[in-house]
Design a protein around this nucleic acid. Structure first.
Lengths: 345, 345
DNA sequence: CCACATGTTGTTACCGATAACAAGCCCGAG
DNA sequence: CTCGGGCTTGTTATCGGTAACAACATGTGG
């Protein structure tokens, strides 16, 4: 492949256009377009000639021109938070690879905070890039007009979102996550289970807390006071410093692995052994979970699956805007490691 | 802001164009363009009128059209690997926020592997999106034609790259990282320092190993055999299982925090205490480093700074393509925590 | 009072692709 | 043999902006 360059009027180099390829192959630009977009009705010989010219000139399509004339950008946007956390990165990767397989490019936009205005700003930036769909990897509070206004116009899928906005939701059933973790601890004989939750703005967070509460209710156990963190290891540590001082706290369900690391650290410092004195369950199954001491029992979330589903929903809405918004739940699974043990009394 | 929609020929809704705004404001489209791109020579009264119309019609610019006519997409691309690691995510976030501040959008493209062909493919996807610059958050082997061909045409900055390709390089001085960590351990009195390195394809990896070796040489110490991991906690664990069986191994410099977690875990399992029996230093200062047991001594890398610098270099090259490629090194810093202690041997 | 610079706005052409339509060809059915 | 329909290719208009230039008003120095 030779990189032939043309000179434009002002003498600067310019990459070859479709017209150049057409001229080189002795066909019309439209035929080149047809070949490159896989239109069926093109003579094999013509197709070959065009492809050879494309190769010889080193032609690459100008997506801006294609977007302008076809009205389709074949790009989707992803809104993420500026935190460097495992789940966000995992979902972003998953979305990118699913989108790529479907021939879509991905634009990322960071929302500076959870504030609806910040999220709307991030969405607006994507809107200006004319993305055909948006994946929100942020929790979306209900009834925020600015966000809804964009979601009504651009197909939007939320990962961890309220089911009442006009976007679709693909989510792990967080209620089930909470119940799974709590039941596991109850089955080990613990009289009750404490919980270190994430921030209330996150449905992940409130869902897990609700599941935890439900599992305790079902078993007829006392529901201890709730502790709150902000997903950071430090906040888990602070909560752990509290919990560790409560003698009857023998089992803790922590809303994320990172906070669980912090909590375990605090328990160690207070001389409480895990799992002998206190059993701990986390959520996420981050890569380090198995290498914590003790190895962390946790609820694994299939982020790749979530991301792929989100893209699938999005593409359906893009292809058929009249199809109604739908939501999908995905199951999480408990991974039992060494941080949980039977109640020892 | 009202969302007024027009109907096009086929009866579908269409967002307002610049011409619509111009008509609404009683000026020409060119004037609207001037107002929106901040051109100075516009009467304040006219500007206000235009801005009011923009607001009333809910106008958002079509970036495809702008890109096509101006030849500038105001978009940069980022090539990342499909691994969900701390450094990659941190750099990506940093690039996005620096780019956003400069008014650029960000396109991400995942390279399926370290294979030069895969990297070139990821770059080609970005090329087709007409990005104005590329940040490679992957190690780039020297002399790979496909990669170089694109880098010659599109300003490219590599984070962790060989200095011989035609792209610029912004990097932490990994040699210094290795030396810093190793010296710290030697100063604690350890006779020598072992090293668990990352994969050889990464300059991060080889640079750290070289710094480690240099520090040992300077101190006139024996250089023990090198161990290799692949950045994963599991590979650190495997290396730890080896090291833990070597009685005289009292100090280990591990090329990443995640591998260090694995190694520490292995050492625990073999009954070797950290830091009493073995001191461990990692690299990255991930969020969990402080909450490991014991808290991990590590070399912190300023990923945000790196990313901002990379974008700065890129924008300079974009604004002035004739400016020569340059490289910048950034300093890392040692964070001393509890996983290192004086030699007790 | 004129020549000329400067500020403000409009007009026209064009960026590079695709949609819509048209034209020529070859085929089989009537 | 002719007509209608499918296949293949070309022509033209258009997407929504911006660059380049033109036109006009206003101000300023000689």
């Amino acid at each position: 492949m030779t990189n032939t360059r043309r000179l434009d009027a002002s003498g600067r180099t310019r990459s070859p256009s479709m017209a150049d390829v057409a001229h080189h192959a002795g066909v019309s630009a439209q035929t080149v377009s047809r070949v490159l977009s896989g239109h069926p009705n093109v003579q094999p010989a013509t197709r070959d000639r065009v492809l050879r010219s494309v190769d010889e000139l080193g032609y690459r399509m100008n997506s801006a021109a294609r977007a302008l004339s076809s009205g389709r950008t074949r790009t989707i946007g992803v809104v993420v938070l500026p935190t460097v956390d495992y789940s966000g990165a995992a979902v972003t990767h998953g979305v990118e690879s699913a989108a790529r397989r479907a021939g879509y490019a991905v634009n990322v936009s960071t929302a500076s905070s959870l504030d609806p205005a910040a999220i709307a700003a991030a969405m607006t930036r994507l809107d200006e890039q004319s993305v055909e769909g948006i994946v929100l990897v942020v929790p979306v509070p209900t009834g925020t007009d600015a966000v809804e206004a964009i979601a009504r116009r651009i197909p939007t899928v939320t990962i961890d979102g309220s089911r009442t906005v006009s976007s679709e939701v693909v989510a792990i059933d967080q209620f089930e996550v909470g119940r799974l973790a709590t039941r596991h601890l109850l089955e080990l004989g613990h009289p009750t289970v404490w919980h270190i939750a994430g921030p209330d703005e996150w449905l992940d967070s409130t869902g897990r807390a609700a599941g935890w509460r439900a599992a305790l209710d079902e078993a007829g156990r006392e529901v201890p006071p709730l502790l709150h963190g902000d997903w950071s290891p430090e906040s888990g540590y602070q909560a752990g410093l509290l919990l560790g001082r409560i003698p009857e706290a023998s089992a803790v369900f922590v809303a994320s692995d990172e906070m669980a690391f912090g909590a375990i650290r605090a328990l160690h410092e207070l001389g409480r052994r895990v799992p002998e004195d206190v059993s701990v369950v986390g959520v996420d199954d981050i890569a380090l979970a198995a290498y914590c001491s003790p190895a962390l029992t946790t609820v694994a979330q299939p982020f790749g699956v979530i991301a792929a589903l989100a893209v699938e929903h999005l593409l359906r809405r893009i292809d058929d805007p009249s199809s109604p918004p739908a939501s999908t739940d995905v199951d999480a699974s408990l991974v039992i490691r060494a941080s949980t043990a039977p109640f020892a009394g």
